[in-house]
Design a protein around this nucleic acid. Structure first.
Lengths: 341, 341
DNA sequence: TTGTATGCGTTATCAA
DNA sequence: TTGATAACGCATACAA
């Protein structure tokens, strides 16, 4: 590996000609293009990206900021983004925003100071992102004003609800974690929109809630949709621990299709975001913002898909084991508190 | 944000003086240092990292190559590495090596061509890493010649085994996935070393094996150690599905402390690698290789720690429910096939 | 079609 | 203590 000067000297040409031949931009004789390309191959020459960046003002590196690299969804994001970016000749610099808005701002600044051309940001729950000096694609929810690429969480919620409806369920528990999360809100809103008038439902937010409350809520429904697979797993474990059979007595649908979901017992039916498409669109948006100032790529939301596995079944008839198990438990039967809105 | 020239003009000084004042290297009058620093603050000046990199030959960016960004362990790695790198003023560029040695080589090359100063590589199962033109820290196992920082998988295996021994178990199943994985081999070797002469054990590799085999093996032991939490989860699910109570009838210990492990029922007792320490050491090694040629930092292995949760109990006495449940199952009782070595 | 010259922003050498 | 200047490797405007 040498530099452009070396090739120029070896071939008795000027650096300009080498540069032109290699980039294909300038007009160079076919013969020289041949020789130059061949020589570059031989010495395994690649243009120094730093020098090029200094000259062109573009580093061809984008930054990826995520709330918490520890989240199980992160690898799926990261991989899709890295692949999409690589296809566009872009490198990906990562930063952990530590689940904290100040740290998020800090992380963004660090990346910008490092000279990234653009940013892909997955914001914290409920936070907005300060604008920056470089173009930014934010992956959030369709309802968020800053959003450029997202899963269609609302449609995903509808899909989950429809699945349960079709299986015959008429009393469905909707389990979220944090009502401040716009993603979770959108998912729940989708579920509600599909369920209204078709089935009874109850919404329960787990953040800061006693486990016993979920436990008793479980017994009042024949099916449950959780806003994430992690939540679904917790609910499944709790249900099974308290003697409820899944899916015979309780059907469960999750969200995200996390890696462990297929290994659950029963394997979890879940709603999966189209990460490759989302990542690709976010990267395309950035790339286009870098070319021309009037970024022609518009915000977009990608439909979610049902991954049908084993955690959904038809509800048990009322006279079945479900009732028996109800009586056998010590949990006091409570009046149904349906939440409608 | 401007450049060094701008400050020089505004203050009527030369760029050299500005540079010296800001870096603290050259000798500049205390008064001018004051003025220059103040002005830099005001206009929010930061040195252009690209220009600096071109001049110094260092980008202050390191590359992180992982087998499969989709692995649940990745986020834990990535976060620790990013934090450690940031502390040393280094950025982290990621590349996905797609669980495929060719792609791994490809990923490394891409990163090097992008101008990273060094690399942190977590190699594929069983693969080695070709040497590169930049320093490289590999995170593997202590027994691997290229290793620079690793969890002490052998000691972790011993720790898991000791835990079970202390609880009184004397028939222990060792569950791995892929015998080609050196990490898994080291962990199992540690278990075996601690168990030999103290208890009966059997080793089972799940890759390409029928589920029924694991199922029947489960019934022949009072406890199980899996080489990863994912495996532990699968085993736990299988055990519970076939009527074995955990931990009353089967104790389980996992590895890695993946995020979902605390949400399992029962919460999984597991052996956790000290990721922050490993990451810190790998980064320190790289940083030191960048300073001086004779990298003074030496390879190191970090002890693993037991995370004690609810999946381990004393074994049930022979006359207890364990035997009852044995008789109640259709699984044909098999002669014990103990594997020793 | 090819070559010369300049500049991107910084650091470093050397002279003042 | 400070300043003029060169150099890092490349891309490009312009001259030949």
């Amino acid at each position: 590996m040498g530099n452009i000067q070396k090739i120029a000297d070896e071939l008795g040409l000027s650096t300009a000609t080498i540069s032109n031949a290699l980039s294909g931009k300038g007009r160079v004789s076919a013969e020289n293009i041949q020789r130059i390309r061949a020589r570059a191959q031989e010495i395994n020459y690649f243009p120094n990206p730093i020098a090029r960046a200094l000259k062109t003002g573009r580093s061809d590196i984008i930054g990826l900021v995520m709330p918490d690299l520890t989240q199980p969804l992160f690898p799926i994001f990261a991989r899709s983004i890295e692949n999409a970016a690589e296809q566009s000749g872009l490198g990906v610099l990562i930063a952990d925003s530590m689940d904290n808005p100040d740290a998020q701002k800090e992380a963004i600044d660090r990346l910008v100071r490092r000279g990234v051309d653009g940013l892909i940001v997955i914001p914290q729950r409920g936070s907005s992102v300060a604008t920056t000096s470089v173009p930014m694609a934010v992956i959030h929810t369709a309802s968020h004003p800053q959003n450029t690429a997202s899963a269609n969480h609302f449609q995903g919620g509808q899909l989950a609800a429809a699945t349960l409806l079709e299986a015959g369920h008429r009393a469905i528990l909707l389990v979220g974690f944090d009502p401040l999360s716009e993603v979770q809100q959108d998912r729940v809103a989708g579920m509600v929109s599909r369920l209204t008038g078709q089935a009874e439902y109850e919404i329960i937010w787990l953040a800061g809630m006693a486990e016993g409350d979920l436990k008793s809520a479980l017994r009042r429904h024949s099916a449950l949709i959780a806003t994430s697979d992690s939540l679904a797993m917790q609910a499944m474990n709790l249900a099974q621990a308290s003697g409820l059979s899944v899916p015979a007595e309780l059907s469960i649908v999750g969200f995200d299709d996390l890696p462990f979901s297929q290994h659950l017992r029963p394997a979890l039916t879940t709603v999966r975001p189209d990460m490759p498409a989302i990542a690709h669109h976010a990267v395309r948006y950035l790339a286009s913002s870098l070319e021309d100032k009037g970024s022609s790529v518009v915000a977009k939301s990608f439909d979610m898909a049902l991954v049908s596995r084993d955690s959904v079944a038809r509800p048990a008839p009322l006279s079945s084991s479900r009732l028996l198990s109800r009586f056998s438990t010590t949990a006091k039967s409570q009046p149904n508190r349906k939440v409608k809105r």
